[in-house]
Nucleic acid binder design. Sequence first.
DNA 1: CGAACTGTTGAATTGGGTCAATCCATGTGG
DNA 2: CCACATGGATTGACCCAATTCAACAGTTCG
Lengths: 230, 230
Amino acid sequence: MTLSADERVALARLEENPRAIRRGQIIQREQDPVRELFVLSRGRVMSYVMMPDGQRQILRIFVAGDFIGAVSTVFGRAQESLMAITDGEICPFDKPALRALIDQHPRVAALMFMISQMERVALTDRLASLGRAPAKARVAAFLLDMIDRLRLMDRDVTDSFALRMTQEDMGDALGLTAVHVNRMLRQLEDDGLIARAKGQITLLDEPGLKAISHYVNRFDAVDLEWLSAD
Amino acid sequence: MTLSADERVALARLEENPRAIRRGQIIQREQDPVRELFVLSRGRVMSYVMMPDGQRQILRIFVAGDFIGAVSTVFGRAQESLMAITDGEICPFDKPALRALIDQHPRVAALMFMISQMERVALTDRLASLGRAPAKARVAAFLLDMIDRLRLMDRDVTDSFALRMTQEDMGDALGLTAVHVNRMLRQLEDDGLIARAKGQITLLDEPGLKAISHYVNRFDAVDLEWLSAD
DNA sequence: CGAACTGTTGAATTGGGTCAATCCATGTGG
DNA sequence: CCACATGGATTGACCCAATTCAACAGTTCG
């Protein structure tokens, strides 16, 4: 799907007001009234919910290029918190801007619907992972998902990437404790599937990782025809 | 949000071609090419994915009145299987019909976007539940979610409903074994929180259930204003 | 009536959690 | 440049929630 020049300009306009964010900064808190959506132009951000007992469930790790916050347009209040994992830059835009974009560029609207549906599929994959996979498989799947998404945005990424998050964070994403994440990473390393050095993860044996993780890359089979009829 | 007569008619037209389904019938299989969406007019349906090792993760239980299959519009192939849990009736309609509906009734399109976002929130809730809650809390949350959704569609539902699914199914939805689901149900019963009789579940102490389950009903705070400006 | 599910309960096992100590890298103020 | 504080990673010992295995009881339905 190729966008028209017009559409490109409209999308670029969303990135007009960059704002710097610092590691650890809370961008949005659960239950806050929401007026803005974001494009993440640099850095990493995570979304999460807190359980009443203080536990945290990380829902999603966003990387540079991701579009954050479609859900909030529906609910008056934020359903999830956003925190910067690293320093970076976000480009906020408000609901009227979104509304205008959708009205003037129906295909962009369709594109955004698509993105939101792909997010949904990512969620169901993680649901299956948390519900049915043992710890080692979850960690492996997490690493594979991470690198695939980084590759999507940056062609230079090959078999290695910077994790840039603590094992505690990984645990909260995978429904495990930090201690156990550590043990699983060590096992993957001992098995010769990955290598670690100063926060860099190198995938030494992707087929092997895929075999234990049940991971599927779903971004092949996207059907764009149904909306291209203009 | 009140719909115009026109809009109502358009929505009703989707239910023009009812098709009967039988308990256990597979309506759609993962990876099948998809051309249809559905409205479920009677009965219960579940969506699920299979893991390579034969495990099943149930993603969602649909009840009468639910709208099934928005994801499939994006991917050419089904990302999840659909199976009838009980006998019932579905009303299929094809992608062009959806396209026409969206083009002619923008507010209905917005409504459908909203529904898909609410589905997403439901998914994140389950994700947090699977990732961070113990078995008893998951079962309690499941029961509360179920009854709230049935109430939404049917005003006669008060504190009791028919489960209409096996404990095996519940286990596959909650990431537990059937055996453990059984034990948790028994515990909830012993605690005086629920009563069971011939597949009917009665919630004796909803506040108590909510307390252990961390359950939140999120369908209060839906913001409709942003799309009502026509 | 019998076969095939489904539900129930007990006993033994185990994956992952908890607790706690130690290591290590980084940063900071003096 | 050093002393110390801090946040994270790592590892071991022990514990417990949930699984597995197994037997049996009820239900449903051909």
